[in-house]
Design a protein around this nucleic acid. Structure first.
Lengths: 211, 211
DNA sequence: GCGCAAAATTGCACAGCGTGCAAGAATAGA
DNA sequence: TCTATTCTTGCACGCTGTGCAATTTTGCGC
């Protein structure tokens, strides 16, 4: 009773959730973040203001999509056990692409949100906050991979944690880079392609004597 | 009439500002972020609630220090004109150290703030938001440096901007890494030393075949 | 269909937040 | 001392976010 038969209750819940999100996105795009009250958005979404807060703690949370999540278990295991053959960064690259694929199912909302993230630092801040949890998850996976690639790392757990964290943070830097480049340009390409491009540039950066 | 003779008015202003910050830090450390109201903090700081909001837009802003700024003009110029002799990342490393030095003058508040940033994602988020402006400033400086190191980059302004942005984001990733490592450990070393250490690890990461 | 348990929606009350405004107090400078 | 400037304060007001309890809707076995 989850994906097979969501049930009327669950379907209505998702519909309400979506209605609220659309209402807020619509109004904010129209009048700006501070020009919209929860009451107005609730009227448009056709729910009571109280119900609004049952779904989201704030306008801002409604604007933001769901927090990013790790891709499927199999994709994670594939990355962890890839061995030293596949490049580490290339593996993280694939991992992040699969992770973003999940949230790109609604391209319309995706673009609107992105515009708002650029416009309102406050929203960007919230996004980064949700990213932090995701970072920890990725770092844990990277640590597992590092340990398999080089079991001797187990002798210094702290060093392993710090190393995987650094790799993760750098990877997320590349992701942010891809994101902004993709947004700044007239977005002729897919975000996933841009992500790979940024990872490539990252490697080039250190391959040359630039650094 | 700036640094030489701040004047009574300016001195009182700074005193009030500081009193508010100390009051909020004290109370939040005691009762948690949500256990403190602006009214209480105002009473402790001995100002009216209205005056509180004349200084800070929120509790959170009072908790956060001033936003980071680029170091002195001379330090920036030194970096920009270092030539290809000094490593680029090493230069950014120095730049960021000098930038953080400015905000570390009050070690007591610095530590308290840091503890709160770890504890409350909301505060961390705000911090990242203020960082974004700083990132842009650094990226602009990095672009100048790149252009001097390799004038041919001028033919493709977009590529130059993207490259400098990637370098900046990666550098900030190293900074965040240093910051968390410094906080996780029993902080036996200076933050600046840890920063250099993270930058070193970053280079090692790509020097080896790990990537 | 019927009816009951679970869950969702809603209204209400309430404390806190943040800002505009204008009056009053303190300061700078002549 | 006098005046212009700046800072502080109180007041009013609308918005935010949450607890609570009443009401409505849905799920499900009968």
């Amino acid at each position: 009773m989850d994906a097979a038969a969501p049930g009327l209750r669950e379907r209505k819940r998702l519909a309400t959730r979506r209605a609220i999100q659309l209402a807020v996105l619509e109004l904010v795009a129209e009048r700006g973040l501070d020009g919209v009250t929860v009451d107005e958005a609730s009227r448009v979404a056709d729910v009571s203001p109280r119900t609004f807060f049952n779904y989201f703690a704030s306008k801002e949370e409604a604007l933001m999509g769901d927090p990013p999540e790790l891709p499927s278990r199999s994709a994670v295991e594939e990355f962890v056990n890839a061995g030293t053959s596949g490049g580490l960064l290339a593996g993280i690259n694939r991992l992040l692409i699969r992770a973003t694929e999940g949230s790109t199912n609604d391209i319309e909302m995706f673009h609107r949100r992105h515009a708002l993230l650029k416009q309102y630092p406050q929203l960007f801040a919230m996004r980064m906050a949700t990213m932090r949890r995701f970072e920890e998850e990725v770092a844990a996976v990277v640590a597992r991979r590092l340990l398999i690639d080089d079991p001797t790392l187990a002798v210094d757990v702290r060093h392993l944690a710090e190393k995987s964290r650094l790799i993760t943070l750098v990877s997320f830097a590349a992701m942010r880079h891809a994101w902004t480049c993709w947004a700044d340009g007239e977005s002729p390409s897919q975000l996933s392609e841009r992500l790979t491009q940024s990872f490539d540039e990252l490697r080039n950066l250190f391959a040359s004597s630039t650094a």
